[in-house]
Amino acid sequence: MTRIHDMGGRFGDGPVPREEDETKTFTADWHGRALALTVAAGALGKWNIDASRHMRECLPPADYASFGYYEKWLAGLANLLVEHGLASADEIAAGRSSGPASDALRARRLDAARVEPALRSGGPSARTSTEDPAFAIGARVRTSRIAANRAQNGGHTRLPAYAAGRVGTIVLCHGAHVFPDSNAHFSGEAPQHLYTVSFAAGDLWHHAESADDEVRLDLWESYLEPA
C-alpha cells in the first residue's frame, strides 16, 4: 500500500478545477509567501528536496486530502522545522521564537542578494557513475511488483502504484541520478541510472481510452528487471 499522494489513475475526482484568472502566478498573497518561505528554509541545507516531498506525503490522509496545495507545503515545512531542530513544537504553537538559532545556522541564511543566483543555478540531480547502465534503449523491462521503498517501511519512492509490476520499454537513458528512496531518508545520494520507460495504456488500464496511447515514467534502475 502506498501513501495518499500516490493518486495516478484514481477514480472519483471529478472535473479538473480551473481558476477564473489563470494569469496570476499566485491566487492569494499567502500562496507566494508560503512558496518563498519553503524555498528559503530549504536553502538552510538541513534537508533535501526528496525529504521535503516525503514530509508532505506523510501528512495524515485526511489532512492531505483537505489541504490546498500551499497548505500542504506549510504543514510539511512546520514538520520539517521541528524534525530537524530548527523550531520546537512549542514555538510552532506560539507562533513566536523563544531564542535565536546558532551562529552557524544563521550564517547559512539566504539573503535577498543571493536569491536570484541561487534560483537560477538550481540543484542538479545528475551524478557521474562508474556503473554501466543495465538497460539500453529498446529493452523490455518489468517494474517492481510492489511500489514501495525497500529499505524503509512506508518510506519515499517514486514508482507509482499504477505502474507497479507492469512491462514497458526503455525509451530514454538519463545517466545516473540521485536515488530519492535513499536520499529522502538521509541515507546518502546512492545514485542509480535513470530511464524513461514507455507503457502501453492498455497494459496499465483495463479500460484504456485508446490502445495506441502510452504513458511514460522516469524510473530508477532498481525499480526495473529484464522482462
Partner: peptide, 30 residues
C-alpha cells in the same frame, strides 16, 4: 492559512534564519 504563513515566517525571522527581503525577492522573480 495566511496566519500559518505568518507564524512560520515570524519564528524563522526572529531566529535569524529567514531574510524577509529574500521572500519578496523570490516572489518577485516568479
Amino acid at each position: 492559512p495566511a496566519l500559518r504563513v505568518k507564524a512560520l515566517e515570524t519564528i524563522l525571522v526572529e531566529k535569524g534564519l529567514i531574510d524577509p527581503a529574500a521572500l519578496d525577492a523570490i516572489i518577485d522573480l516568479y
